[in-house]
Amino acid sequence: MSLHLKPGSVVFENVTKKYGAVTAINDVSFTIEPGNLVTLLGPSGCGKTTTLRMIAGLEHPTSGRILIGGKDVTNLPATDRDVSMVFQSYALFPHMTVGENVAYGLSVSGLSKKEAAERAKEGLSLVGLEGYETRLPSELSGGQQQRVAVARALVLEPEVLLLDEPLSNLDAKLRRKVREEIRDLQQKLGLTAVYVTHDQEEALAVSDRIIVMNRSVIAQEGTPRELYETPASSFIADFIGDANLVEGEILDQDDTNANVRIDTLQCKLPHRGFSNGPTKVAIRPDSILLEQNNPEINGIKGNVTHASYLGNQIHYSVDSSLGELFVVDYRIDNAIAAGSDISITFATKGMSLIAS
């Protein structure tokens, strides 16, 4: 016996969700292709969890349509949707064995006890927990409990797997390990997965595409690289990757690039359709280069106000004519002490024009 997973698409068409006078989701549209892992990312209260719950059927839209696998499920209850959900708390039954937890949904749906147990065993094998059937959840680590929750969702053979902040209860080191396991499993099985998190690094690490939400709407959608390298707004630039937002001026441009002045420096950046004149520039922390005691460097003058050693990198706060800058420097053997005067230049990558 083997699991028969049939990945489906997810489509939102002009979906709005209101709770009385409060609009949680406002006219949201997107498409998730079969076999993709798409992350809903954003700050608390942005609408990402409400969106996930509407896919699950735990909430219903005030207006608009939701389709799963091409089928209109807008008004269908959760029990009639071909989706499975992994909850933040894992929601394992403490009095049941691991095998019984994984088999629970199958038994409730009418499968024989023997067949449910066989499917549960196969699901545990998929997540690397062969032989754990007779253990209790309390006998497992947090990461193992997480995998049991994933196995319980997978054995239902859903068109779409939903994951609601699945790593929030794990420590930092374990989070990295388990997110890699989830991503590997999703790619191996060709699952359609919708993943909710507020952790930018987590979203960048696991996603085919990311939908960034803010104030009940989609702020930007794209691949991890697109969002990091070409943020569409100051919100995206600041939310993903701690960008420094500075004032600049577009002097002139050709078909592709703009000649941009930032204080005393000039650089070429993709113009992105912006007009000549004042503009904003997002600069990644590791794209700001600091040099001390080098008269050959003709950069923007600044002063290091704070320096923090973090093992493989040093974080600097720098006071400059551009404002306070956050800088990440991997040259740990050439640390600059707080209070030092420095010259600021920019790397050739990690800078982007953005809308105000």
Rank of each mutant, 00 (worst) to 15 (best):
G323R: 10
L310E: 15
S109H: 07
T31I: 06
L170D: 12
V148R: 06
G105F: 04
T50W: 00
V281S: 01
C267G: 00
S2D: 12
T97H: 07
D82P: 02
P43Q: 08
Y330S: 11
D333I: 05
H315V: 09
Q88K: 04
R179H: 07
G190T: 04
L161Y: 11
S29P: 13
S321P: 06
D341L: 05
V22F: 13
E139S: 11
V148L: 08
L185T: 11
M85P: 11
P231I: 01
V212I: 13
V83Y: 03
P137Y: 10
A153E: 06
V327P: 10
F326Q: 14
V206H: 05
G143Y: 05
M351G: 00
V217M: 14
I314S: 10
S233F: 06
V15I: 12
T305R: 09
P94R: 05
L353I: 07
F12K: 08
D184G: 10
N101E: 10
A103W: 04
T74N: 12
V160Y: 10
S321E: 14
A337C: 06
S168P: 13
A120M: 04
A120D: 12
V127P: 13
V246D: 00
T51H: 03
Y309R: 03
Q313P: 03
I314C: 05
L111K: 15
Y90D: 11
Y90R: 06
P43F: 01
I283T: 04
F239T: 07
R119S: 09
E133S: 12
E229T: 04
T97P: 14
L37F: 02
N75Y: 06
G277R: 09
L265H: 10
I218R: 01
K114R: 13
G143M: 04
T50K: 03
Q186T: 07
G110E: 08
D329R: 02
S63D: 10
G8T: 05
M351T: 01
D242W: 01
P7N: 08
N257Q: 06
S207W: 07
Q253D: 08
I240K: 12
P231H: 03
Q253Y: 14
I344K: 09
E181R: 08
S340F: 05
G35S: 06
Q313V: 11
P137M: 08
I25P: 07
L251M: 13
L106V: 06
T39M: 01
Q313K: 14
F274V: 02
K113V: 07
V194Q: 11
G70A: 01
G277C: 07
K177H: 15
T62V: 02
G222L: 06
V127L: 08
Y195K: 10
R176Q: 14
V28F: 02
I182A: 05
D341E: 15
Q186P: 06
P295I: 05
M351N: 07
T74R: 12
D329Q: 02
T79D: 15
R119C: 07
D263E: 15
E202P: 12
A337W: 01
T16P: 13
A205D: 11
N101R: 09
Y90V: 03
D329E: 08
N14I: 00
S340Q: 11
A172K: 13
R179N: 03
V246R: 01
G143N: 12
E33A: 14
N294S: 14
V83C: 09
T230A: 13
L189A: 02
G35L: 02
L3G: 05
D164K: 02
Q186M: 00
